[in-house]
Design a binder for these strands. Structure first.
Length: 442
RNA sequence: GCGAUCGUAGCUCAACCGGUUAGAGCACUGGCUUGUGAUGCCAGGGGUUGCGGGUUCAAGUCCCGUCGAUCGCCCCA
């Protein structure tokens, strides 16, 4: 271990090989699905004025003061690395006049930063997929977002282990009534609650509902349901959401204890949850945040959105099988490297007859080592580039299959293209399957 | 912020109740065999056992601290 090398920052990760491929696969599938649903790409800055996040998070001072990466820049302004996408997108919506595009359907993905203790599936720099519909008050927007999330998980092949838990927080009147009823209920059982939950009662009473403490469970389970205080309007909204999900074939499960801490959340709240990731089981979550844009000083603007942890999704999917290397060129020695480079460049760029070919070159070690390396890489074929025998030649080429041919390609475009290329550039003869390059055509 | 477990070559790990030159596989380098070859053979480089202190005749092994990792609590926008 190098003593002088600075270490990676706690909670950050370096990804290579399979881990990186998994990550990339999630992003690619998301990008494809998001287009199917007509969500445009949006790019927003990785850092913003601290106020963007502080205001959107409102009174939850713990989160703002302890769990954000905030710093002063050289001009003395307080900046913060984004801990979420929504606030930044909402800010962009306001500062760029994107109201003109409402309802705006946008998607993005990238790194986010939270100063938290790392654990399974939780990092300080982590990555999310994100989708938002801004300026749509209709339940159809909620449905669209949920169905897209559902399809994403299906296309990633992880829908089986994941369930959509759905709830409504009602309109603001319902939400207030529910909150009051909960506080009353928990006050009555104050003494039986865990210490943590007694704290929550003062700060964030809704959170007692999803407490993990065994002591709290009976009291939380006996708490009044939002359904008891739901307004007709809120109930109708929720019914339209569930009807839409059913129509689209998205399975869901009511979880009346699913809540959101912040006050601007209204109506739909949801999480796609798995039990395969230990305690950090939420894989995708979101809801309707009709009050957020006002909190940022904008006009009353209804909106819905969700975000999903890329790392968590990546842990759940099967191993992506990247396209194999079709051909590895093996120059026999350094003198044959130039010829190999010429042929290699052709394979990698030629698209006259379909896609270019994934090709590589093994250029270090003895010929034996090069061959072994090519074989271990999982490449399908090898092209040896050898010194010409006898005088006057340019080089000898011999192509060899490393795997049974029927496993990958009966047409063998690679051989076909090699022959075409050689015919155009060289005078050559075939001798016992070896291309003997005699001279260059000019 | 709190708790538990862990920290040995580049990587994955081994080393009986503390005991003498800390081992193996993979990877890397060189060579042999092969002479167109699939997990063949030989050799080599590489570790002050995360770091700092302590106990002991003796510490990778025990104790304290520190840093890091993992899992959980809190939090979860």
């Amino acid at each position: 271990m190098a003593k002088n090398t600075p270490q990676a920052i706690r909670g950050t990760q370096d990804m290579l090989g399979e881990t990186a491929e998994r990550f990339q696969h999630v992003v690619e599938v998301f990008d494809r699905v998001r287009r199917l649903y007509g969500f445009g790409r949006v790019e927003v800055p990785v850092f913003e004025a601290t106020a963007v996040f502080a205001r959107s998070l409102g009174e939850t001072t713990d989160v703002v003061s302890k769990e954000m990466y905030s710093f002063e820049d050289r001009g003395g302004d307080s900046l913060t690395l984004r801990p979420e996408f929504t606030a930044g997108i909402a800010r962009a919506y306001l500062t760029n006049g994107w109201q003109q595009h409402a309802p705006l359907k946008v998607a993005t993905h990238g790194p986010l930063f939270r100063y938290e203790r790392p654990q399974k599936g939780r990092f300080r720099q982590f990555h999310q997929l994100d989708a938002e519909i801004i300026g749509a008050a209709e339940p159809a927007a909620d449905v669209e977002l949920l169905v897209m999330a559902d399809q994403l998980l299906k296309e990633l092949g992880i829908a089986d282990g994941v369930t959509l838990q759905l709830n409504t927080l009602g309109d603001s009147a319902t939400r207030e009534a529910w909150r009051a009823a909960l506080v009353k209920h928990f006050e009555a059982h104050r003494g039986e609650l865990s210490d943590d939950s007694q704290e929550r009662l003062a700060r964030n009473p809704l959170r007692i509902l999803d407490s993990k403490d065994r002591q709290d469970r009976p009291i939380a389970d006996a708490a009044p349901s939002i359904d008891d205080v739901m307004s007709d309007e809120a109930a109708a909204f929720f019914a339209q959401v569930t009807t839409g999900l059913d129509a689209a074939g998205a399975k869901w499960e009511r979880n009346a204890r699913l809540v959101r801490g912040l006050d601007y959340y209204r109506h739909t709240a949801f999480e796609f949850v798995t039990d395969r990731l230990g305690t950090q089981g939420t894989v995708l979550g979101g809801g309707r945040y009709d009050g957020l844009i006002e909190a940022l000083g904008g006009p009353e603007t209804p909106a819905v959105g969700w975000a999903a942890g890329i790392e968590r999704l990546a842990m759940l999917i099967g191993v992506p099988r990247p396209d194999p290397v079709e051909l590895v060129l093996i120059p026999q020695d350094s003198e044959m490297q130039t010829l190999a480079t010429e042929i290699l460049a052709h394979f990698r760029s030629d698209q006259s007859d379909g896609d270019a070919i994934i090709a590589d070159m093994a250029f270090s070690g003895s010929p034996k080592k090069r061959y072994d390396k090519a074989r271990k890489s999982g490449a399908l074929r090898v092209l040896n580039v050898e010194q010409p025998v006898g005088a006057g030649g340019i080089g000898n080429l011999r192509i060899r299959d490393l795997k049974p041919v029927d496993e990958y390609d009966e047409q063998d475009v690679v051989r076909k293209r090699l022959r075409t290329f050689l015919s155009a550039k060289f005078e050559f003869v075939m001798n016992d399957r070896v291309f003997e390059l005699k001279a260059r055509k000019s």
